[in-house]
Design a binder for these strands. Sequence first.
RNA 1: GUCCCCAUCGUCCAGAGGCCUAGGACGUGGCCCUUUCAAGGCUAAAACGCGGGUUCGAAUCCCGCUGGGGACGCCA
Length: 498
Amino acid sequence: MRLRFAPSPTGQLHVGNARTALFNWLLAHGKEGTFILRIEDTDAERSTRESEAGILDDLRWLGLDWDEGPDVEGPHGPYRQSERLHLYASYANELMAGNHAYYCFCSPQQLDADRRARLDEGLPPGYLGTCRNLSPEEVQRRLDAGERPVIRFRVPEGVDVAFQDLVRGEVTFSSAVISDPVIVRSDGRPQYNFAVVVDDALMEITHVIRGEDHISNTPRQLLMYQALGFTPPHFAHLSLVMGPDHTPLSKRHGATSVAQFRERGYLPEALVNYLALLGWSPGGDEELLPIGELASRFEIEDVGHSAGIFDPEKLAWMNRHYMKAASPGRLAAESARYFLQAGYILQRTPEAMEYLASLLPMAVGSVDRLEEIPERVRFVFAYDAVAALARPEIAAVLDDPGARAVLAALAEEITGPLLDRESFRAMANRIKDRTGQKGKSLFHPIRAAMTGEGGGPELDLAVPAIDRGAALAAGARVSRIMSCHERARSFARATEKL
RNA sequence: GUCCCCAUCGUCCAGAGGCCUAGGACGUGGCCCUUUCAAGGCUAAAACGCGGGUUCGAAUCCCGCUGGGGACGCCA
C-alpha cells in the first residue's frame, strides 16, 4: 500500500489539509504501507520554497513523517513536480501521438467570454471544443505563425465514467459533463490533473485519499489513466472541514493553519487527536488516543460522509488534556517563548527553565493553551500592591471586617521565605489563631496581599512558588520576583494609605 | 444554471432492519468538592430534516422533496 500527501506550496498548511495528510498517514501506518510526500509546485507564480519549508515543518511538528519525499528522496523521485517536467512532456507527447490530446489556440480572453456566455444562457460553462477538430494544416499554420497553444486532453464522447470511492461507494459521471481539460499550459508547464495522474502512476500510489473538492476531477483523471495505459489507484474522498456557519473553514473563522495553532500554544498531539476524530471514530468510548493507537484502528471505509464543523471548544478540551499529561520539563520548554515574550524570563538558562517547570503544574490545569500560561502565573512576576489596590475587586477585600487584622498579622508572621506548602499552611494557621478569621475571610486578604489578585492557583502552591522565585540568583535570568515578606509589608503600607 | 456529494442532540461521532425508552464526547444547566478562579466527580436538558414507499417491523433499504456542500480555470 502506497499513499501520498501532495500539497502545493502556496501558503501555510491549512488544518483541512493537515487532516487529509493525517488520514493518509494513519492508513499507511496502520497497514504497514508507505507514506510519500510530493510537492505540487507546477504553479510557478504562487509556489514558494518558503511555503514548502513551512509545510514540511508543520508536518514534522504534527509527527506526520514520510518515507519518501523531497528531502529524503527515494526510488520514485524526484518528489517535486517542478523537477519532473521532462516526465510530463514525454507523456504529453504520447497522448498527442495517440490522438488523446490536441492543441488548443483559444485565448484566455476568448475562453472567458465563452464561459460567461454559457453561464448567461443557463448552460454548464465548460470548454466548447472549439479547437477539438482543427485540421493538421491549420494547426501547423498557426504554430508557424508563432501562436502558443495549450494541450487539451480529448474526453471521449458518450461514455460513463464510474469508480468505487472507498468512502462514498460508486460514483458515476457522464463524459458529456466533462469538458476537455488543459493538460499542458502554453508555456509548457503541466496542469494539475495531468501531473497528478503521471506522478501517482509513476510513484505507484495505490490509494489516493484527498479532499472532496477533487471528486469531480476524478473522472477526467481516470480517463487519462486509461489513455496512458496505467492502472488507476483506489480513490477516497474526504468531506471538507467547515466553520460554524457551514462555510469552508477560512481566516475569518479564526486560526486555520497548523502554524497558527502551534503559535497559539496547542500541542501537536491534541491537534492530531482532534483532527482524527473529525469525520472518523476509533470505535468504543475512548476518544483520547495516541497517534499510534489511532493508526492501528483506522480504516478508510469507516470515515464519515458528511462535512464536519471545526469545533475550537473540543480542541481546547483535548489540548487541556494533553497539557496536563505532559511532563513539567516539556511544558517549560514549549511555553518558554511566551514567558520570554512577557518579559518574565530574560533567557533560557537552566535555572530559569527549571523554575518554569516548577511553576507550570499549578497553572496548566486551568488554561486552554500554552500561550495563556504566563498570564495565569503573572502574579509571580508582576506584583504591585498599589496598582492592585486601585482595582475595585481587590479594594473590596478590605470591606471584610477582619481583613485588616489578617493583613497586619500577615506582615508580622512572614519573617522569612516560605518555601514549601507546610510552612505556608503553618503560617496561615498562626494567623487564623491570632485573628479568629477563617475560610474566605482568612484567605482572601492573604491572596490579595500575596498575589495582588482575586483568584488564581491554590495559595499553598502559589506562595512557595513566589518565594522560590524570589530566591533565584541574578544569574538565573528571570525578571526580579518580590518575596512574600516584601509583598506583605508593601501591601500593608499601601493599605494604610487608603 | 448543469453535474456530483451529503443529511442522527448546538457540535463531533456510535448506530450496518428488531439489541433504540437512540449511546458516548465537547459545549450548556444543576449539584458535590473547595480559601478564589479553574480543574475534577456526579447529574440534567438536548437529535433520527420532510413526504411517500418496501417490510410483521425502518434512524437503518428505495424514491421524491427540502436543505447544505463541492465542481464546472492556461489554481491545485
